[in-house]
């Protein structure tokens, strides 16, 4: 490992972009996610109910799963070079099975002394709308 790899803090700059990821959950993944939670809300698995009774265009992708993907976006980028210490996000608009979503982010502040980073995050739908914005704080390893 080179010296620069062992000192990633020096390399991270405001404006650095986190790798984007395409996300296209299907019924099976959504089912497993809600099964793991013990979440039986019909909008996630009962298509006639979700569309006919609740008036959604399809099965609703679980909000906390979108939040989880923001965490993954940060952690995959950080690797062993740092640690995710906090995250904030909100589910602004619903998304549905069949949609292709995209996660990504950008470094918006770097405190060289403490190694603390501020990262803005998003889940975006195909129309380019940010449906789940977030902000994370991470600390780079000394």
């Amino acid at each position: 490992m080179s010296l620069t790899e062992r000192q990633p803090r020096a390399n991270v700059q405001v404006g650095d972009e986190l790798p984007g990821r395409e996300l296209k959950p299907d019924n099976v993944q959504l089912f497993l996610y809600n099964a793991v939670l013990w979440n039986a809300h019909r909008i996630h698995f009962d298509h006639p109910y979700a569309t006919g009774v609740e008036g959604y265009p399809g099965l609703v992708i679980a909000g906390p799963m979108l939040g989880d993907w923001l965490n993954q976006c940060v952690e995959e980028w950080l690797g062993d070079a740092g640690r995710l210490v906090s995250i904030e996000y909100s589910n602004r608009a619903a998304s549905y099975i069949g949609e292709t979503l995209r996660s990504g982010g950008k470094v918006t502040a770097v405190d060289a002394a403490s190694g603390e980073l501020r990262i803005e995050l998003f889940i975006m739908n195909e129309a380019g709308e940010v449906i789940t914005p977030g902000v994370a704080t991470a600390v780079m390893s000394a």
């Binding site: 996300l23 497993l32 996610y33 799963m65 995710l84």
Partner: peptide, 30 residues
Amino acid sequence: KYAIATGNRQRRYLDGDQAPPMFHVALFWD
């Protein structure tokens, strides 16, 4: 189960060696 269902790609979580962020959501769901 949580790591697989969320599409996590990190080995330590997929193998269950450590809990990923937000695992507590599943752990404490009623």
